[in-house]
Write a protein that binds this DNA or RNA. Structure first.
Lengths: 190, 190
DNA sequence: ACCTGAACACCGTTCAAGT
DNA sequence: ACCTGAACACCGTTCAAGT
């Protein structure tokens, strides 16, 4: 049976879920697919591009939100965080793909957030930066949260000093900071 | 001559500056130091820890700022960004070390920002999150900026679509979003 | 068009043995 | 105490050759 891009990405995703990003190698993926490592390079130019396709698979569940701009920002960020938390090292993988410019879905999400910023009254030359700032927050927060969750699941007694509050509430609080900041920059208020 | 931790970190930093993080390997570093690769493991438990030491070296120039809380936040962020931009892949390296919890200086910076948030009137159970949110922004923004700069220096015609504005002004604008958001959460106003 | 097999040029980490 | 040398178990990528 011939190898399809879809098969490759599916198996890569399950490898990611089971063993994490550090063990997601081209050679191991090829072995899992019963194919030689070189075969993957017929379908993908390099590993970065393959990881970008996995990132897009992870981000598939994201759909455009409706409502006023703060609702749309909150919904988009919540969807993004949920998608990242659904896969081992999801935040790390998507961050890397964003940095490499290899995720098309991420580009669409950025555009969605920039449009919301525009509706908030942010000047057009700044909407992209506002969108990126929101994304930096979601990726940073979720990468942190996920590494703690995974450490924890691995049986370590993570310091619970002041980390007692519900992660959802913490996430919402940090996001509120950003939406309040955006509102302060708008011509019309929230 | 005996190998000292300082020598190792110094040479690692110059290797980083000259060839980037992808080429900063334990074996290459050992070669540069005229030592076997195994020797490094007498001084550092693993690569992550060594990279943490390099991160701390990069962050050495950071000093506690003075002034009212928004001034301290701005100064700290400006210092951080400057330090990151002074070394090839600086933002990427420090981000990784922060995630791994291997940078002591980063812990100190976080504490500084949390204190500023406290002065802004943020409730004590949220100051750490506010500090982290600011750090996510600086690291995200600077990693973006640096990858564009380095792509550019490598001779590529990066799309200059709406990217025309001064990076310093863009950085300040995004940071303003955050400080405005913090001010909105304070009991006392800015 | 799609894939294999072998090669190239590397990795991080460990550890017995040496000085 | 500090380091070497060799080994273990891997990497990403290329490319002539096969079907």
């Amino acid at each position: 049976m011939q190898l399809s891009k879809r098969d490759v990405v599916d198996v890569a995703t399950s490898l990611l879920d089971d063993y994490g990003i550090a063990d997601l190698s081209m050679r191991r993926l090829a072995r899992e697919l019963n194919v030689s490592a070189g075969a993957l390079y017929w379908h993908f130019a390099n590993k970065q591009q393959l990881l970008g396709a996995v990132a897009d698979r992870i981000l598939q569940p994201l759909t455009p939100a409706s409502g006023n701009w703060p609702e749309r920002v909150r919904a988009t960020c919540a969807q993004l965080r949920d998608a990242l938390l659904s896969h081992t090292d999801g935040a790390e993988l998507v961050s890397a793909s964003l940095a490499a410019g290899q995720s098309e879905v991420m580009t669409a999400v950025l555009a969605r957030l920039a449009a919301a910023a525009g509706d908030a009254g942010v000047a057009s030359e700044h909407t992209d930066l506002v969108a990126r700032t929101v994304i930096y927050y979601v990726l940073g927060f979720t990468a942190d949260e996920q590494s703690r969750l995974q450490w924890d699941a691995a049986g370590a007694e993570v310091d619970t000093t002041v980390w007692t509050e519900d992660p959802n509430a913490r996430f919402a609080f940090g996001l509120r900071l950003l939406t309040d900041g955006i509102a302060a920059h708008s011509r019309t208020g929230s």
